[in-house]
């Protein structure tokens, strides 16, 4: 495993720890999109169906279990925890899941490496992950007040994908891995979606201002 891949996984893990900290310590999920979190559960469940069938490494299995467990518990807190659920911005988190899930599923049926259940589900999870942040970005845009934890959470999620791009470049040139268009292009799209957010995040950080996205 190269340094970029590890950095990617660690920023991903850190983003989840940050969000769980906000939820468990602050008892708040203000500014967090339940839609996006539910999409992540679908992403992990459909991608990791091979967990019980194929063993890659101890690290790989543990991380998969952590991502599955944490994403499910985040959704549980936001939906059912009697204090946390009161802080959820239900009225502004209106992005419909189906508008993302359906096109991604159709695309996965049409464009995949092999027409098998596991492979189509895996491809679907890549397409869905690429766009799963959209409800969260829409929610941020509608929020007058973005707290630091939420801003940092989204920034780390974007950083995770940027590190994965570097990881693929490294693997291709240094480790002579094959060209893999489906994960590469969906990963590239996923990172590009953060470009606007990155711009305002870094700007607010440089000017020591509170993060605010233009409506």
């Amino acid at each position: 495993m190269n340094a970029f891949r590890l950095a990617g996984d660690m920023t991903h893990l850190l983003s989840i720890i940050l969000l769980l900290h906000k939820i468990r310590a602050m008892k708040s999920c203000a500014g967090i999109s339940l839609r996006t979190q539910e999409l992540y559960v679908i992403v992990f469940v459909t991608r990791y169906v091979d967990l019980s069938m194929k063993y890659y490494s101890f690290y790989n299995s543990i991380m998969k279990i952590v991502f599955l467990g944490t994403s499910i518990s985040i959704v549980w807190y936001m939906r059912y925890h009697k204090v946390v659920k009161q802080t959820y911005n239900k009225d502004v988190d209106t992005f419909r899941h189906i508008f993302l899930i359906l096109p991604c599923f159709v695309l996965a049926l049409l464009i995949n490496r092999a027409f098998t259940v596991i492979e189509v589900l895996w491809t679907f999870s890549l397409y869905l992950e690429a766009v799963a942040i959209l409800p969260q970005l829409v929610l941020l845009q509608r929020s007058r007040n973005i707290d630091n934890l939420t801003g940092n959470y989204v920034f780390l999620l974007g950083a995770y994908r940027a590190f994965y791009l570097l990881n693929w470049i490294y693997r291709f040139f240094i480790e002579n891995h094959q060209v893999r268009w489906i994960p590469w292009l969906s990963g590239l799209l996923q990172t590009a979606i953060y470009a606007d957010f990155f711009y305002y995040y870094i700007k607010s950080w440089k000017n020591r201002e509170k993060l605010k996205l233009p409506a």
Partner: peptide
């Protein structure tokens, strides 16, 4: 290179 070059990722 191996077949599962992307599948060992998360």
């Amino acid at each position: 290179a191996d077949q599962s070059s992307v599948k060992d990722e998360l």
